[in-house]
Design a protein around this nucleic acid. Structure first.
Lengths: 135, 135
DNA sequence: CATACTGTAATATTTATAGTTACAAATATA
DNA sequence: TATATTTGTAACTATAAATATTACAGTATG
């Protein structure tokens, strides 16, 4: 199972970019996502750590973008929500006495590193504004 | 959690390519992977469906490559073990009355499709022989 | 015919992800 | 200043996916 963090975070950012200057509540956002507002707040906490949004507590509070939508790329969202993409590793430590077992994870790591560079390259070219404008 | 199928399958193929013509038992392979032989046999079943290997039952049985290692690419392994790579979707169906909720999954799908094309392009250029030769 | 394999179903275990409940703290505004 | 509304977060529960195990029928070898 792959986590929905990237999709959820991008959904939140798209909504925020459609309402710049407004503070959107986690309740409002969670209604669009059809999910629990607490989970939305958790993803927002991550966006705050990365200085992409700011929140205001209390009545009429909520969250708004701190940065211009043209200034946030999908790669920023990717880096915020994934360590990196992989095609996975076997769960157990392979046999270190086997030449293949000993090196397989390192070789896979190299492969995945290249993959992530390519993905980052793709995502860097798409700003939140680009993405949101297709809606 | 991401499944280890790709890594496990590639590990198996690497071992087989190091012993062409020999039938390797699931017991032997599972010792290198340090995992249960039944799981190895399940991944081998997948390789057989894809005509990459053949197995022989009974005493001295096991599995061997059907194709030349230079003729199998990592993209073949990828296609065999993943539907496709994604950065995920939110689990619940988003609100269809919200313009963002209504279209987000389609837009994400487009993004991921591009991503998979790039990944496939990378993996097509690496044969099992290329990969195994680095060990 | 004994041994050593594969094939596969059924079940159990482990782990990751998602969801819920509860409540303290903050803020607007009546 | 009292009330309503909202964030922040911890603790816990539930669900789902991945992995592991057990068991045994079927098959080939020598």
């Amino acid at each position: 199972m792959i986590s929905g963090k990237f999709a959820i975070t991008l959904h939140i950012l798209t909504l925020l970019s459609k309402h710049p200057e407004e503070y959107l509540s986690s309740e409002f956002i969670s209604a669009s996502l059809n999910m629990n507002p607490v989970l939305v707040r958790k993803e927002i906490a991550n966006l705050k750590r990365n200085n992409i949004v700011e929140s205001k507590e209390g009545k009429n509070g909520g969250t708004r973008l701190l940065r211009n939508a043209s200034d946030v790329t999908l790669n920023d969202v990717f880096k915020m929500t994934f360590d990196n993409v992989t095609l996975g590793y076997s769960k157990n430590r392979p046999n270190q006495n086997c030449p293949v077992g000993k090196q397989i994870n390192e070789k896979l790591g190299n492969l995945y590193e290249d993959m992530n560079l390519k993905i980052s390259k793709q995502l860097k070219d798409i700003s939140l504004l680009n993405f949101a404008d297709t809606f």
